[in-house]
Every structure is written in C-alpha cells, then in structure tokens.
Design a protein around this nucleic acid. Structure first.
Lengths: 201, 201
DNA sequence: ATCTTTGTTAACCAAATGGTTAAATCGTTT
DNA sequence: AAACGATTTAACCATTTGGTTAACAAAGAT
C-alpha cells in the first residue's frame, strides 16, 4: 500500500486496482496507464502484454494468501485451534482486501486447471497433515465423522461469502464500510464457534 | 432448456449460455450470434444493444430465483421449516444452473444499486415477516439471540459458496459433476441441521 | 397477384483496443 | 562532453468489436 515511486511499482499498483475492480476482460490497458499516470506504451515495456500483466498481478494476489494458510494447516495445533486461527487470519486479511475473493473466484471459473497450476504447481495442495489429523480425531471419537470436503466448504463459505456479497449487504442493511467490518469482526468468533459445535462430539 | 426454434428464443438461449460463461465484458456479440446460428445483425434487430440484451438475460435469470424465495419467507411455516425448505429448494435449483451464482455475484459487484433496483424495484426486500418471526421466537426463548444479518450470511454462504468454487472442488477432489452433485445433495440436509443447531436453545 | 410488414443477411463503418515503432529524454560511464 | 544504456513518450497500426445500412426473402393482408 506504500505509495509507488518508480514506474514499475506504479504500474503494479494501478493494474491491481483496475483488475480487481473490473476483472481481466473488463479492464482496459489505457485505464491502467491512466491510473498509474504513465504512458500506455510503458505497460508493454515492463510487461509484454495484457495477459502477462494480469498473470503477474494474479500471482501476486493469490500468492499472498497461500503461505499463511498452509503454514497454519501444517502446524502442530489442534483441529479446533486451526479452525479458529484460520477464520481469524483469513477474515483479518480479507477485510483489508475485500475485492480479492470475487477476483479469485472469477479466475477459478475462467481457468480452473490453470488456476490450480499457478497455485500449487504440479503437486497437490498440502493438506495431508490436516486430513490425517482429522481422521485420527474421528477415530478417537473426539469429533463426529465428517466428510473433510464438506468441512472445508463450510469454513470457506462462511468466511468468504459475505465479502463477495458485500455491496448488497451494505446497501440492504444500510450499513457502511465500518459497520460491515464490525460484522466481519463478529464472524471471526462466531464462525469457529459454529463450525466446532457442528463437529464436536 | 427446451430447444429454441424461432430466432428470438435461439438468441436468448445462446446469450444466456455465453453471458453465464464469460460475463458481460467477456462475451462477444459474435459469439452469441454463432452460438445461436444466426447473423449478428439479428441480435441488434431483436435487442438493440449488447447492454439491452444483457439486461434482458439478467432479468430473466435473476427473476427466476426471487419469487420462490420470497413466497417461502412469507409463508406461515416455522423458522426451522423455512430454513430447511430454503436450503433444499435453493440447492436443487442451483444444481441445475450452477453458473448462475457467480454470474449474479459479479453483477452485484459491478453495479450494486442497479442490481437492487432490478431485483426489488424501489421497495425493500420483503423480509419483514421473517424478521418479526425471528424476533418473536427469540423473545419467547425458543432460539438464541442472533443478528438476522449473520444468520442470512450463514445460510447463503453455506448454500452458495460450493457452486462458485465448484471448478476447483471438482479438480482438487478428483470428483466429477455427478459426484459433486451428490455432495450438494448431502448439503441439503446438513446445512439446515448445522444452522438450526447453531440457533436452537 | 401485388402491396406491406416482418424477418434475415452481407457488407460496411466508426470507435475502441491491444500492441508496435521510432524518436526523445534521462542518468551513468568514460 | 560524448557515448551509451535504460526509460518514457507520441504517433501509428492492425484487429476486434458493437453497431448500422441497405438489399433481400418470407409471409400476410388487400
């Protein structure tokens, strides 16, 4: 968020803003150049094409999310702790970058395979530790038998959805940005509670 | 889904398909004409511009969802029944039109005010009955005190999210369309269970 | 049969758009 | 200060794109 000074940084900041707001197809190279306050040719000087520029921006945005999540999943915390920390970390992050989720979801829908390759290379996402942990606790009777995919969908859905629906939520409830964020702060606590209650035995 | 015969129907079916797949900015009038097997000029003959055509398609898609939801909310069922029925109806619907949610969410993010106007005209969405019902049951001590907005976000998030993330879910879990739908069938039961458990006293 | 309205198409157009080129400017090295 | 590489810009280009026009065909109406 620091102000950009050299051209490349200015371009990246501008492209991020425009791509997040309008998506790949909706963004115009001229918009990005204007936003950056530089000549359109300079875009092509630093990044050869619109696709390359988008690629760069996307990688930056998507890459910022992953490491924290993965570290968390692979840590030696309990399942319950992991769920709590995940929701808190994730929502904290997204409050500061509320346009990111819909941006990512669009890319997921546009090019699912390419998306996965960009995110994880060729290896599977590193959820093995978490899955084993789940199975173990189920066997030990600590938590209910649950399909991990369903659990994953529940956590992600509860965390992400409000942000992709945010504009109407704000309009429908008459709540402004600050109040919306307060709602999300509540959710940092309530979502883990709800999830854990649903799997605890 | 019935095969279109006259030109207008063919156009609408084609436009629906292309807009759902590529969004407003990503769709090309030529794509739609090709998909419909007609000349591009005919698009402009029946619908004057791309925006008008999109508007028409969007209204059709969004409008198909609302009435069922509203009828349900305003019915004389109990809160618990309403939640159960809503999730079942909604997921059943979306299984058959899996691209609709991301399509709608994009429009929400593109033009929030216009979206609301299209959906509800100038009046507020008719959730009064449901809200009163909620307050009453809270007062009577039947359910926990809960912010209705949070409840709404929980229900919608759990129902909708899997569909907007569907492509990666299918890839990551190696599940095909059929298996994905089976997962969603499970959710018709599990989501209401979870929601109700979270508010029941 | 012919006139008229409606539906359909090919050809065309202007603006927008991603991208290129060549000249100019700036900073650094010699 | 001359030379050189890196950066920046204005002008340009080719293609794409939404949209128009005018001719043409189909189908009723008289």
């Amino acid at each position: 968020m620091a102000k950009a000074h050299n051209a490349e940084e200015k371009i990246i900041a501008a492209a991020k803003k425009i791509f997040l707001a309008k998506g790949l197809a909706g963004a115009r190279m001229q918009d990005i150049a204007d936003e950056a306050g530089i000549n359109k040719s300079l875009l092509h000087y630093y990044f050869r094409s619109k696709d390359k520029l988008f690629e760069h921006i996307f990688t930056g945005i998507a890459g910022a999310f992953l490491p924290r999540v993965i570290n968390m999943l692979e840590s030696d915390k309990t399942i319950f702790e992991k769920i709590e920390i995940f929701c808190q970390e994730y929502i904290s992050q997204v409050i500061q970058t509320p346009y990111v989720p819909i941006f990512i979801l669009n890319e997921i829908n546009r090019q699912p395979e390419a998306f996965l390759k960009k995110m994880f290379g060729d290896k599977k996402p590193p959820v093995d530790t978490f899955l084993k942990q789940l199975k173990k606790e189920i066997k030990e009777g600590k938590i209910k038998s649950i399909n991990p995919v369903q659990l994953f969908l529940n956590i992600m859905g509860l965390c992400i959805f409000p942000f992709v629906a945010r504009p109407v939520i704000e309009l429908m409830t008459g709540k402004d940005k600050i109040q919306f964020n307060a709602l999300m702060e509540e959710r940092k606590i309530e979502i883990p509670k709800m999830i854990i209650a649903s799997i605890k035995k």
